[in-house]
């Protein structure tokens, strides 16, 4: 019974912590973040087209049209929130082997790279990501798609090439990570060019 006062202590602690970390902390940070950036979405990048939110560089869409840069494969249904999971094939699984083999066949000299057989297919383009919504691909993964995109969109190859070069994100502090391009950004450019051409 000597310790009964700690029941009161723990309950008081619960309520004071609720005020500090469950109310003040989230509300204050959210309020300041939205206030500073003048946006209800805080500082998240959103791409608008004629006033409609058409995408975000932080979330890949299911770009299947041949004139767009294709994302990495994903088990995710891009439109569903509930199945956002990545690969669960083990590293030694025959399923992984066959899956990768089929994709490499599809890309190498096939539709995706537009019968381009001069280069090998980077592992980046034929593997699942961790998030399942990886919006980025490596430079090589972008380059192998250029002949196809040029053919279907009518944009000259050298324009696409400079588009990739101009939008390459360099490693942070020149060493953290690898150079990559965001395909949502690239595809928005392609979409704009094609809209204007019509």
């Amino acid at each position: 019974m000597k310790y009964i006062k700690h029941v009161r202590g723990s309950i008081t602690l619960l309520f004071s912590m609720l005020i500090i970390v469950s109310v003040i902390y989230p509300f204050a940070t959210a309020y300041i973040s939205t206030y500073v950036y003048h946006s209800p979405y805080s500082n998240v990048p959103v791409i608008y087209h004629n006033g409609t939110a058409i995408g975000s560089p932080d979330m890949v869409e299911n770009f299947t049209q041949p004139w767009f840069f294709h994302p990495r494969p994903s088990m995710t249904d891009y439109f569903s929130l509930s199945s956002n999971s990545s690969s669960n094939y083990g590293p030694v699984s025959p399923v992984l082997y066959n899956f990768t083999l089929q994709l490499v066949k599809k890309y190498y000299g096939g539709y995706i790279s537009f019968n381009n057989t001069t280069t090998t297919i980077p592992i980046n383009m034929v593997s699942y990501s961790s998030s399942g919504v990886d919006p980025d691909i490596t430079i090589l993964s972008a380059l192998i798609q250029i002949p196809r995109i040029s053919h279907y969109s009518g944009i000259p190859q050298k324009d696409l090439l400079s588009m990739v070069t101009n939008n390459t994100v360099a490693p942070f502090l020149t060493v953290v990570g690898i150079p990559y391009v965001n395909i949502v950004t690239l595809n928005t450019y392609i979409y704009d060019i094609m809209q204007n051409a019509q």
Partner: peptide, 27 residues
Amino acid sequence: VFMGVPDTLTPYIILHPVTGGSSIMPL
């Protein structure tokens, strides 16, 4: 937040991608 992570009381944003349909981006 400065680096682009959302922090807001807005729960999500509905996107209308050029590929068709619509998708929900949770914030």
